[in-house]
Design a binder for these strands. Structure first.
Lengths: 129, 129
DNA sequence: ATTTTTCTACGAAAATTTTCGTACGTGTGC
DNA sequence: GCACACGTACGAAAATTTTCGTAGAAAAAT
């Protein structure tokens, strides 16, 4: 299945996060990471990862008895896809409004603020209308 | 039920959006709005709104035969709550990274960019560390 | 070599979310 | 009055997501 338009469920997203952070993993590694947050049976994790592989969200190397899994989608791409959806469904598509709230809520470091400002400078120069 | 920590499902969020945009509504009005996007049976919408009322997401005025519903949570509050969750699960809590992507993807007007810059100015003055 | 552990496969139960059929009461027009 | 449109209530089917038990093969330990 083409993963480009598959929306991961919440449980699937947690697994993707682990794989993005750690690279290739076995089911056992992923399961252990999941268990840091909450109790999850081994076969539950296994089944999830098998389903995700069918959906095209993961790939796996079966050359060894213990299969090794990888995310089949880039973190950035998935973030963009989910952000678009979130923006639509929660902020009616208004990025500015989302950005204002995100900045307002969180304590963002001065360093990060500078970077964001730089991006805005470039966008204004580049020519938003 | 206390609505403060209830996470709406996707279908519930769509209904909240309609009520936030239009204020008090009957089931029929909401159903008509939903049908602009996709076919939805009347009793389906009714049931959803009844469930949401039980959860505390909506309130209703039953003084007339045709009940009138309102959102029981403020749009802002819900946005904040969902944004926090989204930030955590998709951007590992990094607001800056979310903001950069949100700005990068969308075409935001010069007007909006100015507002965001103003907010950043205030935050820097206010003293982010 | 036998037991124990570790792994995958798979079906199905459990939990959650969404949809809808049916019943039944009330108002409206004829 | 009677028929018909329109409303709520409610249970349960359908669809989706998550969890897990069991079986059986392969590796490791004893």
């Amino acid at each position: 299945m083409n993963p480009e338009h598959v929306k991961p469920t919440e449980a699937e997203l947690e697994i993707l996060q682990i794989l993005w952070a750690r690279g290739a993993c076995t089911v056992r590694e992923v399961n252990e990471q999941l268990n840091l947050k909450r109790e999850t049976g081994y076969t539950t994790t296994l089944k999830m990862m098998q389903i995700m592989t069918e959906k095209g969200l993961l790939t796996r190397d079966e050359s060894q008895r213990t299969h090794v899994y990888r995310a089949a989608v880039q973190e950035r791409d998935m973030q963009k896809r989910l952000l678009d959806k979130f923006l639509d469904s929660v902020f009616k598509g208004s990025a500015a409004s989302l950005v204002m709230q995100a900045l307002g809520n969180s304590q963002t470091s001065a360093e990060e603020l500078r970077e964001i400002r730089k991006l805005i400078d470039e966008m204004e120069k580049g020519g938003a209308k």
